[in-house]
Simulated assay, not measured.
Amino acid sequence: MKSVELFVGAGGLGIASERAGFRPALVLDWDKWACDTLRENKRRGLKEFADWKIVEGDVREFDFGKVRGSVDLVTGGPPCQPFSLGGRHRAFLDERDMFPQAVRAVRELRPKSFVFENVKGLTRTSFASYLEYVRLQLRHPEVTARHDEPWLDHLSRLERYETSGRHDGLHYNLVMRVLNAANYGVPQRRERVFIVGFRSDLEFDWHFPAETHSQDALLWSQWRSNEYWDQHRVTPKKRPDGGAGRERALRLAEPPRMEPWVTVRDAISDLPDPERHPLLAADHHDHRFIPGARTYVGHTGSPLDEPAKTLKAGVHGVPGGENMLRRPDGSVRYFTVRESARLQTFPDEMVFHGSWSETMRQLGNAVPTRMAEAVLTSVRERLRRSA
């Protein structure tokens, strides 16, 4: 099945698309460092990148007519700074908003399906009208804005078209949901909003894949069965007191049926600590100690025995708290690039281009591959059943 990957960045959605069984006819991004990362991994022979046709350029200038034949899937994470909780919240006034280009791609390529993802901040109350504007444009991509038409006027016209019941031409049935990556086996509590659409002439029914992992299952394995500590060979003296998590576990009547949340320790315990064992760490690519981590109110780092906090890119470098590891003794250090890649479930063989802060920007903007793969595999299965 043929796909087109937009705003691909470090490749989280693109890798997930490849693993789900799609083959990219186009992989597009404007960022030099991100494209260098993709080209380097393709050159190194990573199977996920083998068939990628990488184009470095501005999507606003790309002619989608160059993509030949029918397209099964369009994916992308339109730049999210306009909606990020850490950004300036300008939304439709922000020139970095690339949702109009996502709509254009759907209009011109007419794919059977699309999957777009973005930060949870897109669902904030202050952005409710613009989110509805995005939804209606994706649902009716041929109802385009007129020259110099204000977006609110275009929204009103889309609302009238939506409620008229007369939907001629290209339109899509779509669903939208905020997903927590930890609930799909990602060692990170990262919430992203997914917008999934199917072309209406296909008459598909579809729903988001069921969650596979839970916090209660982790707490049970830590404080009821002790399987978690035994697996990691953590003696009782070195285990934390558990606090509220332990109390919650003791209230559980029976073992949860889901898999446990994956923790930071699960993800990185086989890697040598780059601060305490730098020579051993040097044997692992992109795994070196970065000094300067410190704690302060609201920035205490990610506990070792929980999923990590949301990795962030930051406007002026990487924030202090979210991208730090907090060891059981209270000491902290920054996650390395290799550890961060694991927290985003990227392949271990993958390498990244750019400085530490630039690479962390790529990783902080990415969608976790494992979560995206769950969604895209479900989409592909629905498309396959209709073929």
Rank of each mutant, 00 (worst) to 15 (best):
53 K>E: 13
64 F>H: 10
31 D>Y: 09
148 D>A: 10
55 V>R: 00
213 H>A: 10
308 A>G: 03
370 R>Y: 05
224 R>G: 07
9 G>F: 05
292 G>L: 05
140 H>F: 08
372 A>Y: 06
235 T>M: 15
278 P>L: 05
259 E>T: 14
386 S>G: 13
196 V>Y: 12
201 D>I: 12
134 V>P: 00
98 M>D: 07
217 A>N: 11
209 P>C: 08
229 W>F: 05
320 G>I: 15
151 W>T: 03
250 L>E: 09
145 A>Q: 06
137 Q>K: 13
176 M>D: 15
157 R>G: 03
154 H>Q: 04
21 G>I: 00
34 A>N: 12
275 E>G: 14
224 R>T: 12
91 A>G: 00
172 Y>S: 13
290 I>S: 10
300 T>K: 09
209 P>F: 10
310 T>K: 13
113 S>E: 01
204 F>Q: 15
42 K>E: 06
9 G>M: 06
11 G>N: 01
291 P>M: 07
124 R>D: 04
311 L>E: 01
85 L>S: 04
72 D>Y: 10
188 Q>V: 07
116 F>L: 02
319 P>D: 07
371 M>D: 12
128 A>N: 11
224 R>L: 07
208 F>G: 14
116 F>C: 02
74 V>N: 03
169 G>K: 05
253 A>M: 15
241 D>G: 14
359 T>I: 07
9 G>K: 11
250 L>T: 08
110 R>P: 02
18 E>P: 02
3 S>C: 09
276 R>Q: 11
174 L>Q: 04
116 F>T: 06
43 R>G: 12
248 R>I: 01
46 L>F: 03
316 H>G: 14
147 H>N: 05
374 A>G: 13
73 L>D: 08
276 R>L: 09
285 H>L: 14
18 E>D: 03
152 L>Y: 14
34 A>W: 15
198 F>Q: 11
144 T>H: 13
161 Y>G: 08
85 L>I: 04
368 P>L: 00
75 T>V: 14
33 W>Q: 14
145 A>G: 13
261 W>Y: 10
204 F>S: 12
144 T>F: 08
341 A>E: 03
328 P>V: 02
37 T>W: 06
83 F>R: 00
218 L>S: 15
157 R>F: 04
232 H>D: 03
106 V>C: 02
149 E>G: 00
155 L>P: 00
102 A>K: 01
80 C>W: 01
136 L>R: 07
237 K>G: 15
261 W>C: 04
385 R>W: 07
356 W>D: 04
205 D>Y: 15
277 H>V: 13
65 G>D: 12
129 S>I: 09
223 W>G: 02
225 S>R: 11
288 R>S: 10
111 P>A: 02
132 E>D: 11
294 R>I: 13
128 A>H: 15
130 Y>I: 12
170 L>R: 12
